[in-house]
Nucleic acid binder design. Structure first.
Lengths: 197, 197
DNA sequence: CGGATCGTTGATCAACTTCAACGGTCGTGG
DNA sequence: CCACGACCGTTGAAGTTGATCAACGATCCG
């Protein structure tokens, strides 16, 4: 499957009505890029000028807090988008790192290109509106999980919903995404939680 | 200020280009409602058929977990929108309660009405796209706060960013929004945290 | 082959919760 | 208009969850 076919399949999942011609027009605004493991595509202090659709590979967005700990804010593998969302939407300096966890292929869409696309096609505007709505819904579910579940429950739930992600992510990434330490996640996985009495 | 003027000011904040005629057309799809304190506008099991713009008053969206504890997912006072976002976007059964914390006035927008509005006006589609993007950005900042800050830091930050909200919300609402118990928030507020040695 | 990276395990510790008891205030029915 | 319960907040003691620290083991590349 070539990159355009991948892209067509991707957009048709959200917008079945999109014609091939429209998909081609959109596709023309993207740049295909190869990114090596450990390479950064967004860095704190610089504006995230693009959002990135992962064709193949894996990425992680994280912030580093005062204590120097990193906290994973977002993960992406094949067919997901990633960037520093705040930075991209407001075109303000980023606070996150976005780094490749594997050698990857991405489709990069610049902010200005996205604006033009939305201006030139009503359907594209709708595409990005739906994308933003679903992203918000996803984030809200994550907030609910954080407020209502224990570390173990969050892990088990995540494992059930995103088994592919769990398989591909190193454990320290997973732990920091789920809001716990690697040590604790290791204990959860090996049923080494000390139960009382 | 009458309700339409309130609405016009509200939408112009996001869309300065909106003409009065367009604002009037949008406004016609909303229903003004008065809601008494403790009245529910969304309930679990029923689809959230509307989203609500708070003209005057205060609301709280919360879920009840297995242990019977309630966790506040969203707050809204004047000029904010509220509903069960997941339920509204996917038109699926709600998991949240949305309840009035004061006697309130809201502008209610039904799902179908929103779709028609977006179809009939490009600018309205853009309005809701921007709204969704900012909502997602807001939620992501909340996730970052939850992953990187202690309970005390979350409270102090929230107090700084949303002093009006803090003033108007009862403490148990605030505590459950910030992911801690009322007791603990009370101790934070009275500097009763026991420090070691 | 050798360091860097990632994961494991147990002991101790800190942040926050739970529980219990109590005090104030608000609003509603008698 | 008062009284009484419901609701909300406070405080301290004890309990839990998960973090921190430290040491070690495995694996993976270069």
């Amino acid at each position: 499957m070539n990159t355009f076919d991948f892209f067509l399949t991707h957009v048709r999942k959200r917008m079945p009505l999109l014609t091939v011609a429209e998909a081609e027009m959109m596709f023309a605004s993207f740049r295909e890029k190869r990114v090596k493991k450990r390479q950064l595509i967004v860095q704190p202090g610089f504006v995230a000028r693009s959002r990135h659709l992962v064709v193949k590979g894996a990425f992680r967005a994280y912030v580093v807090d005062e204590k120097g700990e990193d906290r994973t804010i977002q993960l992406a593998i094949d067919d997901w988008w990633i960037t520093d969302y705040n930075s991209y939407v407001f075109q303000a300096p980023a606070t996150m790192f976005v780094v490749a966890l594997e050698d990857s292929i991405i489709l990069e869409l610049g902010y200005e290109e996205e604006q033009s696309l939305k201006n030139s096609s009503r359907l594209v505007e709708t595409f990005f509106r739906i994308k933003a709505e679903r992203w918000a819904a996803f984030l809200q579910r994550r907030i609910i999980a954080g407020l209502t579940q224990s570390a173990e429950e969050r892990y088990l739930d995540f494992l059930e919903k995103y088994p592919l992600l769990v398989q591909r992510m190193p454990q320290y990434v997973l732990a920091s995404y789920l809001g716990m330490t690697t040590e604790f996640l290791s204990k959860i996985r090996h049923h080494k939680l000390k139960k009382k009495s």
